[in-house]
Amino acid sequence: MPGTAAFWRDARLPHVESRRACRSRACYKPHSHPTFSIGAIDAGGSIFTGSKDGQVALGNGSLVLVPAGCVHACNPLPDTVWSYQMLHLDARWLQAHAPALDGDTATVLHCPQLYAQFCAMNALLFSKAGAAEKDAALLAFLGACASARADPLPSERKPLPRQLAPVLATLQARPSASLPQLAQAADLSPYQLIRAFRAATGMTPHAYQLNMHVNRARSRLQAGGALADIACELGFADQSHLQRVFKAHAGITPGRYRGQGG
Results as ranks from 00 to 15, higher is better:
92 R>T: 09
150 A>C: 11
250 A>L: 03
252 I>S: 06
60 N>Y: 03
101 L>W: 12
178 S>T: 15
212 M>L: 10
110 H>Q: 13
238 D>H: 12
205 P>D: 11
52 K>V: 08
48 F>R: 04
6 A>V: 01
75 N>V: 13
183 A>I: 12
100 A>R: 14
90 D>K: 03
228 A>C: 01
228 A>N: 09
81 V>W: 02
65 L>T: 06
26 A>H: 11
106 A>P: 04
208 Y>A: 11
59 G>S: 08
22 C>A: 09
144 A>R: 15
7 F>R: 15
199 A>V: 07
191 Y>V: 07
137 A>P: 00
123 A>H: 14
159 P>E: 04
254 P>I: 02
98 A>I: 10
144 A>V: 12
223 A>S: 10
112 P>I: 13
173 A>G: 03
43 A>S: 09
237 A>G: 04
227 L>K: 05
118 F>T: 01
146 A>H: 07
24 S>I: 01
14 P>M: 09
223 A>F: 03
260 Q>F: 14
221 L>H: 10
136 A>T: 07
15 H>F: 02
226 A>R: 15
228 A>F: 03
88 H>F: 12
235 G>R: 02
222 Q>S: 08
144 A>C: 14
163 Q>D: 04
50 G>M: 00
183 A>C: 11
230 I>M: 09
65 L>R: 01
35 T>W: 00
77 L>Y: 00
152 P>S: 00
164 L>H: 07
175 P>E: 06
63 L>Y: 02
234 L>Y: 02
223 A>I: 05
155 S>L: 08
137 A>V: 10
240 S>F: 12
121 M>H: 15
21 A>E: 10
169 A>M: 13
70 C>N: 09
76 P>G: 09
187 D>W: 02
191 Y>P: 02
255 G>D: 11
233 E>L: 07
123 A>D: 15
253 T>A: 13
256 R>K: 01
211 N>D: 13
51 S>L: 08
91 A>D: 12
188 L>V: 06
112 P>E: 12
200 A>S: 11
141 F>D: 03
167 V>D: 04
153 L>R: 12
214 V>L: 09
4 T>R: 07
247 K>D: 11
125 L>D: 02
199 A>F: 01
41 I>F: 04
181 Q>N: 11
122 N>W: 08
30 P>W: 13
134 K>P: 13
221 L>W: 13
153 L>W: 10
206 H>W: 14
50 G>V: 01
175 P>I: 11
255 G>H: 15
248 A>F: 00
141 F>V: 10
169 A>I: 11
136 A>F: 10
224 G>Y: 04
50 G>P: 06
46 S>E: 06
16 V>W: 14
136 A>Q: 10
248 A>D: 03
207 A>E: 08
